[in-house]
Structure formats: structure tokens, C-alpha cells
Computed example of a mutant assay.
Amino acid sequence: MFGDAPARYASVDELAAAILSPLEAVAARWIERESKGQRPVTQFRRTRMVASDEGAHAAVEVVPPSSIPGGRALHLAPGEVVFQPGSFAFACSGGGLYCFSQREPQLFEVDVPEEVLSHLAATRWLARGPGGGVALVGPAHVLLIRGTEPALMSLPCRPGGGAVGPIVAVLGDGRTFGVVTAETEDGEGGPELWLSQDGERWSDPLLLLLKGEVHAVASGPLGFFVAGSYRGKRGRAMWLGYDGKAQVFATGMTDAPPLEVAVAGADGAAWAAGAGVVMRFDQSGAAMEASEGGSCPVAMGLDEDGVPWLVTEREVLRRHGAGVPVWRRYHAQPEGAPRLVAIGFHPTGVRVVDALGGGVVLRPADFATTRPFGG
């Protein structure tokens, strides 16, 4: 301390210990108050509607398969790619972790200590980690890559003991991080959602009254949207509000197939997709929307304008919602090309990744054109 200057904290950790607890208490009270009034707890971007009768026009740039150091083949599955803010993404394949530009095919292998290599091989999902970085998640592990030192996060556990099911879905959109575990006899009668803000502690589990299996979970301004299936035959979906109130959708779900992917929009609506089907969910109920796609869904996301996109194994679709909603096809994989697995967004383009690390960059005519993609 110099003169009359106030004392400084000795470290960032010491400062965090002093301020995070009061901030978390204020955030909890804010969430409780806004949830009671069914108001968004945070300011989400507004969704710009694309006219339903507007054509699906986009410039298409083909990205060749990725080049892996050592000549090893890259084989990606849905869930094994995560896009970070900016122009880079991460992928996990064959027990290796790779970083790559959203546009260029060249990969750079990330050095991972030998003691956690087995967890890379068991990784099923990549997501944005709590507080930044990347989370590599499998049925029985959460490995956080933040800075240069990977860290294994302790798995969710019950205060009084008792079994916790394997991880079946991951929430990691950059705003919220969490995992869904399967139902066990020691739970409250359904899958459970566990959240973490710091990558060290888990919140108490949130019961998901889905009456089925969870395949996807997304966060929105009013809560968590959950999609899945009942015994792998029928679709299931629900909203879990930040106030703890659940809305399970029953009407309109009779003909819905298992819902594999989901995304929550800015206006309180959410979308989920199954084989050949896209559905919209809001407080008024569930409804199917017309789609030009037909193959199995692998990913959904919101672009820079908040417009939902859907990737199937063979197609890329975008929702046109001003008028009668319809999902327009912007790209279809040629015969014999590898299947698609992931999607990421940039103000001037949409990067779609295929199983070999290649794919396409799409530039819709209404996207910004002031900066080069990846710049």
C-alpha cells in the first residue's frame, strides 16, 4: 500500500473469493424476481425474421478435408466440434484434441498431458466451458481445457450419497454450463440437470419431468428447454423455468419422432428436430413447421441475427419465419460426400463441418459483407 491508497488483493483468486459470493446472491434474487413475472432474466438479442417467400440464396465455399499432422485420418461425429467466439473451433477425434480455423482446413494438435489422454478417447461432447475454454465431456468425465493446464472436474454427487446416472447430454452455449444425468433409483424420478458457474462446484440437481430420455438441452431467456424421446419411439419436450416451474408438452406430440437436437430463441420460443420433422415450442404449446429437409438432424444453432439453423446429415436449413414458417434448404451434400456434423456462426458466414473436417462456408445474401470470413 502506498500513502492513502487502499489495500490491494494479493491475487485474482483472493479478489474473486471476496466478490463472487455477493454477486451470485444478487443474481439469484434477480432470477427469482424476474421468473415470477415470466420476464427474461437477461437481455437476449432479438430475432430478425427472414421472409417465408424469400429464396434461400447463399454463396457457397467448399472447404476441403482437414489435414492432420502425421497423416492420421479425422473422423468426426455430431457433438465432437465446438465453435468459440471469433474464428476458431476445437474438435476431438481418435483420442486427439485439435484446434482449427473456421475457414482453413489445417488442424493444430493441442498438447494434452498423458494422464488425461484416456478421457479424450471417451469424450462424446465438446462444449464451451464454464468461465471460458472448452469442456470435453463423456458419460463419466468432464475435462476442462482453460489455459495450458487441463483439469478434471469432479462429477455431480448427492450431499447424502446415492447413485448419480451417467451423463447423457451437455449444455455449454457460453452463457450456461451444465450436464444432464440419466434417471436413477436414488433420484426424484427423472433425469437431472446439474449446473456449474465456475467449473469447480455443481448446483443442486434440477429434476426434468420429461417422462423419457434427454437428448438435447438449451438455455433461453425464460429457462431451459429440454428435448428427447420416450423409449426411442416418440418425441418428448419441456421447458423448465428459472423459477423451477415445468411445462411439459403433451398436445401436438403424438406424431413427433424422437427429438435429437434443440435450440432456444430470444423471444421465449424454442425449436427441436427429429428425423424429417422440425417443431416450435412456446408457452402456448407445440407445433410442427414445414421443412424442405428430410435426413437425420445433427445440430442446431442461432446465427448473429438470432435466426435458427438446422444441420442434418445431408442438408443445411435456415428458418424463414415472417409469414408462414418454413425451413429453407441452403445446402445439400453431393452424392458420396461425408455426412455433416456441426455448425458455427460468424457475422459474415456460416461454417458447416463434415465428418472429415471439411464442409462448406455459406454466405447468405443478407449477411454482413464488411469483413472477410475468419477476420
Rank of each mutant, 00 (worst) to 15 (best):
141 H>P: 06
342 A>K: 07
291 S>N: 05
299 A>M: 05
340 L>G: 09
58 A>E: 07
164 V>G: 07
317 L>D: 04
234 R>Q: 13
85 P>E: 13
214 V>G: 06
146 R>C: 06
135 A>H: 01
295 S>V: 00
327 W>H: 02
90 F>P: 03
86 G>T: 09
172 G>Y: 04
32 E>P: 01
260 E>F: 09
24 E>T: 03
370 T>M: 09
73 A>W: 03
164 V>T: 13
145 I>V: 10
192 E>M: 01
197 Q>N: 03
102 Q>G: 14
246 A>V: 11
190 G>N: 02
207 L>N: 04
294 G>N: 12
286 A>G: 10
356 L>M: 12
272 A>K: 01
276 G>V: 09
109 E>W: 08
26 V>N: 09
160 G>T: 07
58 A>L: 04
199 G>H: 06
37 G>P: 01
110 V>Q: 14
367 F>D: 11
326 V>E: 03
24 E>V: 08
133 G>V: 03
1 M>G: 14
194 W>V: 03
298 V>R: 03
125 W>K: 06
115 E>H: 14
165 G>Y: 08
57 H>V: 10
83 F>V: 11
63 V>H: 00
272 A>R: 01
357 G>K: 08
366 D>F: 14
310 L>P: 03
154 S>C: 09
300 M>K: 01
114 E>P: 01
343 I>P: 00
175 R>S: 11
57 H>Q: 14
93 S>C: 15
63 V>P: 01
72 R>G: 14
41 V>Q: 08
337 A>H: 07
150 P>D: 05
59 A>G: 14
13 D>Q: 15
103 R>P: 00
172 G>W: 02
115 E>S: 14
166 P>E: 12
227 A>Q: 00
306 G>E: 14
181 T>Q: 10
140 A>V: 02
240 L>N: 00
92 C>N: 04
109 E>H: 04
192 E>P: 05
99 C>M: 12
148 T>C: 06
97 L>P: 00
39 R>Q: 07
228 G>Q: 09
290 A>N: 09
64 P>Q: 05
165 G>R: 08
246 A>I: 13
197 Q>G: 15
139 P>D: 14
240 L>M: 10
143 L>I: 02
257 P>N: 09
54 E>Q: 09
74 L>H: 02
171 L>H: 10
313 E>K: 13
155 L>A: 12
171 L>V: 04
271 W>E: 02
363 R>Y: 10
